[in-house]
Design a binder for these strands. Sequence first.
DNA 1: GAGCTTGCCTTACGTCGTAAGGCCAACCAT
DNA 2: ATGGTTGGCCTTACGACGTAAGGCAAGCTC
Lengths: 234, 234
Amino acid sequence: MGSRMEARKPREPLSRERALASAIALVDAEGMVALTMRRLAAELGVEAMSLYHHLPGKAGLLDGLVDAVAAEITSAAEQAEADAPGVDWRTRLRLRFLAARTVMLRHPWAPALLSSRPTVPAGVYAYYDGILATLVDGGFSYRIAHRALHAFGSLALGFAQEVFRPDAGGEADAEAAEAAMVALAERLPHLAAMVAAETHDATDPTLGWCDSQTEFEFTLDLLFDGLERHRSSA
Amino acid sequence: MGSRMEARKPREPLSRERALASAIALVDAEGMVALTMRRLAAELGVEAMSLYHHLPGKAGLLDGLVDAVAAEITSAAEQAEADAPGVDWRTRLRLRFLAARTVMLRHPWAPALLSSRPTVPAGVYAYYDGILATLVDGGFSYRIAHRALHAFGSLALGFAQEVFRPDAGGEADAEAAEAAMVALAERLPHLAAMVAAETHDATDPTLGWCDSQTEFEFTLDLLFDGLERHRSSA
DNA sequence: GAGCTTGCCTTACGTCGTAAGGCCAACCAT
DNA sequence: ATGGTTGGCCTTACGACGTAAGGCAAGCTC
């Protein structure tokens, strides 16, 4: 239908950008386990070895993914900060970190990937440079700013180290959960008591008893409060 | 030589414990990449498939490793706290976390492994129960204690999320480092300034410009100070 | 002694990343 | 036009990996 002048170009010529974009889409949809060279190639209508003309191997592909996410975070954070001019340093940082968090929620695989990479791609540094700018502009010395970066840890990138995993859903019915709870209470009394206490007066138990957003911001405030006392000037 | 009564038992019968111990030794020595079923079996003088009579597959092996490290941390933390009776909650927690840190320094692969596991083995929960005990005993409500656990994140397990990686040694000579520094300063002025500032007045430049121990304790103090204000009683 | 269990081994399958080289269309200078 | 060169994609193949299926031999119970 329509003009045949352009005929059908059987496919556009494949490139690093196209490969990365396709990889991100694939991982968003099916998780990191689905990201193999063969599978990604198939997704692009190509054979596996063809990818090596545009990417320096699997490791390079993963670095590219991290860089892409870092770029997404950087622009989101920069825009968030620009949208609210004239606020104090901690509000600016909070905006940055929460912007980063929305990006991470779009790419749930990113935290694990980022912390599994043996080296940090360049894009991540660019993001940290922006945080430093905010800190220094807010009156912090480079020494304290440096420590602040370490203190923020992964929070700066929008995610918190999850030590309590969801345990893969499981425990569909209440009786199994109850049994698990009893077993828990025997060996781990305080953990059991905490779960019990938090579950009872939870405002929204459907979301599970850990509201990540609340925890995230609580930790941020702890750190911001502490840092405020180390600030040089006003 | 000597009595042949016992003959030579060609090897003792292999067990989950022996397999885990050997796996830890292997990973301590050569890193996670060296840990394959075949290699571990060879280390035990056995064929790969024999491991499956004692371990439920590779994933189970990794969970076993995490559990073993968690147990090591738990006992180290418990002992550290027991050795200093009558101190306040934050000192007790600091002792626990620093004890965990010494264990993690013995097993540098453990942080990455722990955060890459899809689920958390039981031993980790036991450790967290001890932390909760300390917090509650120190006058915290379960609600705040819960948030404190999230705030501590990986610090409670003795390691900090490393965002700045060592970049694989590299840059052997000063001129290459200098060139990298100049390139850095153009695009990332604040990062460059921070590195410069921290390098110049570093007391011990040989250790690199990030003293992890100092950063670790700095962050702990930030969090402890913040939590103190949320404590219920004395 | 027969039968069963236990502990280890052998073989084999499918998947992974990727090294080596082949094919073919597009482009260039002649 | 034409022969050479280049670059994008494909084919084939190798050596890992985790592990399913089954074999074989020693020691136990009755």
